[in-house]
Design a protein around this nucleic acid. Structure first.
Lengths: 226, 226
DNA sequence: GCGAGTGTGAACGCTATGTGAACCGCTTCG
DNA sequence: CGAAGCGGTTCACATAGCGTTCACACTCGC
C-alpha cells in the first residue's frame, strides 16, 4: 500500500501512534513544496491534514492537493471544535473531517469508511439494478435470479451501461469507452450488440436498454431525484 | 426542499432542535413499515438514523433504505462512542456518521458537507424553469413531474429556448443555433416544431413558448413582466 | 378589410434503427 | 493439420419514426 500524506511535519505523536497502530504507512510533509518532493513513485494513497494548529497552512495544502490533475482522495481533515465554522464554503477541500483531539476509535472508523468509499468508486465488485445483477469478480450476470450467458463484449457493454444508469451514451462514446479508445469500426457494431443483449435479457427486460433516437442508448430509467 | 427521514420516532429532542435550527424539514419514522407509509410524493431528500438507542433497528432501517431502486442518499448515522466498532463491515449502510450525543456545530457541518457531496457527485445536469425540467444527461424532459416524450429536434429546440429564458429568437437564429450553422431550410420548420412542443407541453403550459409577432419566439416570461 | 405573419393538418421523403445473415479470425478438438 | 464451433464485425435490407414541406385557415395590426 502506498503511504498516506500527513501534514504537518512533525506529526502530532498521538496521530502517528494511531496510524501506526492501524497499520497505515505514512509520510510527513511540512509544506506545499514538500508535496512534490516527498511524493512516492506511485503517488499517495490519501492524505490526512491536521488543521488544529495551523488552519491557513492546512487549507493551502488541501487546495494544492485538490488542484492536481488527479485530485488526491481521500482527504481527511483534523480540526478543533472551534474551527468547525471555518469549514463553511470549503466543502471541496476535504472528504471527511474529524474533531481534534480525536478518539482513536472514531479516527480509525473514519479512515476505514473513507477508504471503503473511495475504493468503491474505482472497483465495485457487484453491480445491481432492479432484477439485474452483475458479478464483476466472476464475470457472471443474472436477471431475476436466472443466469445470463453473455459473451465478453456483451458483458462489458452491459457493465458499462449498467454502471451509469439513466445516462445516454452515443455509439461513438460506447465504442471508445467499451471497445477501446482507438477503435476503428462501424457504429452499427453497437446496435448489434445491443440487439443481442436485449434478446438475452428476455422480452420482459429488453426495455432496460432504451434507444434514444439520434443520440444513442440509455440503460434503465432516469433519476429524477434532486 | 423535501423532508429528511429521521429514525426513530419519537426523535431525540436535541436532534429535532438542531434540525429545526438549521432549517431542515424532517419527518420521523418509527420502523421499516413507516418508510413507505410516510414517504413524501417527491421522496426523501436524505436520512438521519439514530443508532445510539437501538443499533439493530437502526441498521435494519439503513438496509431497507439502501435496497431501494434508488438508494437513499445521503444517510447520516448517529452512534454512541461505544458503538463505533459495530460500523465494521457495514460501510455500505451509511455515508457519514457522527458521535452521539453530538455537538450541534459538528452535526450541522456534517449535514452541510453531506449534502454538498451528494449533490455534486450525483446531481445530473439540469435545466429547470418553473414546472419544466430538462435532464441533459438522460435526454429526458418532464413538466410538473410528468415525463414528456419529445423527439430529438423538439428536445434540442426546447433545450435551447429554456436555457435562455425571456430572450426572443428569430426563426433564422433558431435555425442556425439549433439546427446548425449551414442549415438551409424553410423558416416554417421552426413554427411546426414550436407547435408540436406546445401541444406536448399541454394546454396549461403551452404559453411557456410565446410568439412575438414579426420577430420570433420567446421562452418563459419577458423580463419586464407581463 | 387588407396583407403580412402565424397556426394547423396532412403528406412526403429521408434517415436512424431493427433485423437476419454472411464473413472472418481465433480457439478447440479430433 | 484440418474441421468445427464460437464470437465479433460487417453488410444488406426492411421499416417506422421523424423532420420537412406545403396548402390553407386564421389572427393581428394598420
Amino acid at each position: 500500500m502506498e503511504p498516506l500524506l500527513v501534514f504537518p511535519d512533525p506529526v502530532p505523536p498521538e496521530l502517528a501512534q494511531s496510524l501506526d497502530l492501524a497499520g497505515y504507512p505514512w509520510k510527513a510533509v511540512a509544506d506545499e513544496a514538500g508535496l512534490v518532493a516527498a511524493e512516492p513513485e506511485d503517488g499517495w494513497s490519501g492524505a490526512i491534514v491536521v488543521a488544529a494548529h495551523d488552519l491557513d497552512g492546512a487549507f493551502a495544502v488541501c487546495r494544492a492537493l485538490r488542484k492536481r490533475d488527479l485530485p488526491l482522495e481521500p482527504l481527511l481533515l483534523l480540526i478543533s471544535g472551534a474551527q468547525v465554522a471555518d469549514l463553511e464554503l470549503r466543502d471541496d477541500l476535504f472528504d471527511d473531517f474529524c474533531l481534534y483531539p480525536f478518539q482513536p476509535r472514531e479516527f480509525e472508523a473514519r479512515m476505514k469508511h473513507l477508504f471503503w468509499r473511495t475504493g468503491r468508486g474505482t472497483r465495485p465488485e457487484l453491480i445491481e439494478y432492479g432484477d439485474l445483477r452483475l458479478n464483476l469478480e466472476t464475470y457472471q450476470a443474472a436477471i431475476a435470479g436466472k443466469p445470463l450467458d453473455l459473451t465478453y463484449m456483451e458483458y462489458e457493454l452491459l457493465k458499462f451501461l449498467a454502471s451509469h444508469p439513466g445516462k445516454v451514451f452515443t455509439r461513438e462514446t460506447l465504442l471508445s469507452r467499451v471497445w477501446g479508445y482507438e477503435y476503428y469500426g462501424g457504429a452499427r457494431t453497437v446496435d448489434v450488440h445491443v440487439r443481442r443483449l436485449r434478446a438475452k435479457l428476455g422480452e420482459e427486460h429488453a426495455n432496460l436498454i432504451q434507444t434514444v433516437r439520434s443520440v444513442g442508448y440509455r440503460f434503465g430509467q432516469s433519476r429524477w431525484g434532486l
